[in-house]
Design a protein around this nucleic acid. Sequence first.
RNA 1: GCGCCUGUAGCUCAGUCGGAUAGAGCAUGUGCCUUCUAAGCACAGGGCCCGGGGUUCGAAUCCCUGCAGGCGCGCCA
Length: 564
Amino acid sequence: MPKNPRQLAADAARAAILAAYEQAVVTGALPAGAPGQFDVSEPREKGRGDLASNFAMVWAKPLGLPPHKIAEAVAGELDLSGTVAAAEVAGPGFVNLRLSADWYADTLLAIEQAGDDYGKSEGGRGRKVQVEYVSANPTGPMHLGNARGGVLGDTLSTILEWTGCDVTREFYLNDAGNQVDLLGRTMQARYFELLGDPDRYPMPEDGYHGEDVIENARRYLELYGDKLAEADEGARVAELRDFALEQNIARMKADLARYRIRHDVFFPESSLYETGAVEQTLDRLDKNGALYEQDGALWFAASRYGVEKDDVLRKSNGFYTYYAADIAYHHNKFVTRGFDEVIDIFGADHHGHSIRFKAGMAALGIDPERLRFVLIQFVRLLRDGEVVRMSKRTGKAVSLADLLDEIPVDAARFFFCSRQNDTAMDFDLDLAVKQENDNPVYYVQYAHARICSILRNLAAEGVTPRPADSLDLRLLVAEEERDLIRHLGDFPQQLILAARDLDPSRLTKYVSEAASLFHRFYTACHVRGEQEALMQARLKLCQLTGQVLRNTLGILKVTCPERM
RNA sequence: GCGCCUGUAGCUCAGUCGGAUAGAGCAUGUGCCUUCUAAGCACAGGGCCCGGGGUUCGAAUCCCUGCAGGCGCGCCA
């Protein structure tokens, strides 16, 4: 199992503190009875040691002694021959600890040993997780919210894999229902428009006004001509609809690929009807007494499961609502396919769904806690200081493909992962081009390119990195070196936290900080020209920093240039 | 009206589930290339953490309450 240096340090510090306390009890310096609960964390500010603990303040009350006295007594008994090398009492009663040279050396050894796998952990082993993201309606081009959700879901899936989970990445394809029928009728209107007969089937009331529908109709005419002009309307609409869907889905897949967003499964909504899954799920709900009929419609008594209002599952015209299909879909996820946990990534405008879906699961006897949601706020697009509305209906939407024509994929992915999910984003297109040069992603990539450059230059002089265990890594004592190593040692823990919080933005923050610490090290410490032993140790630090940058950017699917 | 989210430097945002003198990037100002990439580094200025109560050794963080903004509340999806 790969090592987690940060965790090792914290555990060692905790054990040392507890042992020192036991000793202080034996000598009579402190009374027995201190609780085992206290923090060991990295001090917020530099210069206060490598780790800090608040145990003295936590114990002050139960032991009936001032924090300072407890801290002094414990610090005096600390074993400083292991992972902890120094301790001092500070502030209101914090004890600041310094890690030993061995810990720093061991951390680098652990990174080298794990290599491309450094950062992986096993806490999620055996957990079957499904992540659903994008799931855009195939009725038109995707918008920027889809791009954000897609990048987020894709990255989150990778993060979960790194913590050991068995992850399935899924796209729910809404290829049934009203929206899709409307697409077919819009296609029909455009079809006749292009044939020079616009009045025969005028644009439906809520039809799709986007250029893309006209494009699809034109494409159909080019391929198959006017053969549908005299066909039965039902058949015509169906054929045009299916053609448009096929075109749109192909384009969505191509756009997603450009963003390096990957899915394992495209799950068609229509299959839920074809296999009878919707009816079966409704039967199950009925058996559980969660349904009732009123005004000719079939209702789900959601209010019994914590939702304010009940919802219709089957309309009085006999058709199912989207909600019925969605409950069936989630039943399929949990029961038919046996996922332990399901994560849905939705736009914040769908947050009503999260409560309703959970109610549906509860009514089916599935623990709602197994269903988690990541709600992402809209990406607001600004051009010339004005908000550009993103609506498929208006036809003025800026699609995610358009964005890539202006912003490189690396920058877009990094940007979408750089904010917490539940904060709204403004994407200023005028600034975006300008931002290209001071975008944080270039800062990180530059650090990587610098490292490659050092390795290249020294290799040209015949100096190549040697295995870490053959080097004296204890020579790395400069503050810049140790800050960097400590941060490298924190990587596995950051991944665990990112997985826990479903928050990829931890990684963009982490890697930016790593780059910053490297740049500082680079400025303060030379590699080339130093004495052999120190040069080799620093070269190793450079190489392993590059390793961690590659691992992190690899998860984010951002490229690591060797030259810039 | 009800529900969810947000309010921290001029701007964009962090703040490790309650800790020490509230941080970073951009922007502004000043320094640093005669040895590894200046797409970099260092220093400086800049704050009523939206307002008001409460909880405790200790609050940007937790609770209550106002205010402001975003989103949602269809037999649409």
